[in-house]
Nucleic acid binder design. Sequence first.
RNA 1: GCCGAAGUGGCGGAAUGGCAGACGCGGCGGUCUCAAAAACCGUUGGGGUAACACCCGUGUGGGUUCGAAUCCCACCUUCGGCACCA
Length: 852
Amino acid sequence: MTDTAIHPAPERSEPRTDRDDRYPFARVEAAWRQQWAERRTYATDRAEGRGEPFYALEMFPYPSGDLHWGHVRNYTIGDVAARYQVMKGRQVLHPMGWDAFGLPAENAAIQNNVHPAEWTQRNIARMRDQFSRMAFSYDWSKEINTASPEYYRWTQWIFLQLYNAGLAYKKNAAVNWCPSCETALANEQVVAGACERCETPVTKKMLSQWYFAITKYADRLLDGHAALDWPEDIITMQKNWIGRSTGAEVRFRLDGSDEDIPVFTTRPDTLFGVTYMVLAPEHPLVDQLVKGKPQAKQVAEFRERLARQTEIERTSTEAPKEGIELDAYAINPVNNQAVPIWIANYVLLEYGTGAVMAVPAHDQRDYEFAQQYGLPILDVIQPPQDTSEDPTGQGRRNIEAIDAMEAAYIGPGTMVNSGEFTGMPSEEFKRVIAEWLEERGKGRATVNYRLRDWLLSRQRYWGAPIPILYCPSCGEVPVPEDQLPVELPTDIEFTGKGESPLASSPTFTTAPCPKCNGTAKRDTDTMDTFVDSSWYFLRYPNANDSGEPWTRRAVNKWLPVDQYIGGREHATMHLIYARFLTMALHDLELVSIEEPFQKLFNQGIIYKGGKKLSKRHNAIPPDATCDRYGVDTARIHVLFLAPPAESAEWSEETIEGTWRFLNRIWRHVNATAHRYAPDWESKVNDAASDADKSVRRKVHQTVQRVTEDMERLHYNTSISAMMEMVNELYQNGEKCSDAAWSEAADRLIRMLAPFAPYMGEELWAKLGHEEEVYFAAWPSFDPALTVADEIEVVFQVNGKVRDRAQVPADISREALEALARENEKVKAGLGDLSVKKVIVVPGKLVNLVVGK
RNA sequence: GCCGAAGUGGCGGAAUGGCAGACGCGGCGGUCUCAAAAACCGUUGGGGUAACACCCGUGUGGGUUCGAAUCCCACCUUCGGCACCA
């Protein structure tokens, strides 16, 4: 067996329609693409007034130019969901657009000397064609493109609304910096600590940059989870990302000065155990503390080394701890003791206040650091004597480790070595000390978040320019709304060098100041593309409205999104940014909703060779498969591959079975279409032969199973249920009545249509229907017809299966138990043991529990 | 490292407290054919048996339960995210 036998090689991509009885997908696809265009099948307004609005949305793609199987999977899942809602009678808004700003267009400009706008437009055109071919039911009249001035005008407008509300501010932040290219690098462009283009080691550079104050919304983002119909793991990830922790801010006086150093701690109860203080190496106070001291050089080297590390290396709890003593002291406010100040790699400027009080006896990181540098360790909490009731055993294990001098004690207990508070339970002391500090102006109870404010400045060309001017006399001035958009200039050379491409444009950098009409300088940074994708769902319903970003009427009609579909990789960033922006716009009374996405579904990613498919690497195109098997087969294959919520290794091994399945339907319906009776519904209940009963039971069971799976988006099992139904039709379809045959054909084509839209339409028309199957009603089932007269039950002894039996479906518990007790194999299994207990599960089993 | 998932036949997977392996691929056997392909029918977890019986089996080790792939604890492996890829 060779590899090519399993994985069709590209040269084998000639269509599999070499026989007359095969599904001629090329002809059918062309015909129905034309029909859909002529009839405006997917226009949102064609369904006006049909039913309650339903907003079906998939995360829009970056237009990389080549559709890969990851796209096909995501958008097929969304398309089936949207088509199902139409069949359930909803008026569906199902739009598509392009997250068109971003790094790849700029890379292409540098490499191939093609303008990002042109490159992007070409890619969009190609992908739109591929999407149409895949039969995705988008209303293309609502297409949006975040890189078009009509769109980014409103991205800039939103920036200004947040700016005016005090939610946008500037501060210094470090960027990855390539000293050779003299340019800022994205994390992705840093490979093994070096610039991916010239391999120069990357350093950090401080720049003044814009932020959105997302941390002001941290609690709202947490509280909002309660009302969302989202997967639990995504909510957990967001909670951990936001990382709310309660504790206290404590002010330590810098010895010999009147300056305070605030620290954040979740453990103010350990304040008497502080034996040193640690600042983040980048802490602004550090320069002042080492000025003129022998440590200054050492500190500079240390910082430079850390600057070369990635965020992940920096935050690893496994990384060896390293620090430098600064020969400066801080005064502990609770006992006025002076403790030495250190800097260390394990303290981060971004978290808390960038400074920690170190309590080696009760914090593991401090403990390890103190051990390493020989710093004193002072116990202030005594573990409870009796830990036997600790069900987890963790407290106990922790204490064993402490006895062996391996770990800090992190649990609660009784205060010791804590002055007047000695003897108090530590949990109580936590509250008491916060009040004590507050009364003396030395601190306060506070809440801290792991979430950081959203840095949105990018030193790039291909993004929305930040609409701010800097005037020598008026200072920072927002661009007036009626002057938007601030358009991207075209007089740019893409060299990959220089601080920000926009700064090199003679036409862009200056503009008249709106206040004094003097010459002002423009902000030459563009916005993070996450800003573009944080509001696009508001734009779709109003995609062609040039006067305003959205209308209240349209937002009220369509939002929030009823079903949002996208990859798990967006769990924290995109999904938090979009929620934040929606909340901010709500508070500015610009939208009435607080949450953008009512229901979320995360499809798993497709990977190949252990890595996910992406726009940069590892893209596997679906074209050859569509040429060979047709779009319907490709759609069903990608859904049948794995449960939509799970990740899947790419493979085409089972595609022959999918192709066979569609052809079995095609042949069956075509060969017997003459049996179709349009009035089958009035006759079908008279059909009562064994074949009729068997076929009808399978049909109604299948409708039930597929309907349940459609609600959960478990499309792989929907497809297997339909395969089973087709197998039944091949067994009994010839023997059953025309009415039962007609019912089966009607139900099958309706259920198939969302998965295989081309074949669905073609067969539906063949049965004589005028209107598209796209608008046909989703079938219902009769529960009475789904149950068999006889069912199989299992007889167990002590949970082991000993025999099975066919019994009437409505058998009583007593009769079932009696059957079990009389069963020969059960008796043999009993031996000389007696029955202690009997478990009867109606319709399933009897379990005899036996013993001496 | 931290956070979140996933691990079931030769392969993709089904079953979310009650018959493990639905459905599909692949394999094997058959019908048709000069032959093949296609199509259709049957069969297919491992051990064991002439055939049954029976035993084993859902990453590893423990636990809860009459009963565990499913719930709990620990561990191993793989994948996604970690704030400038989007």
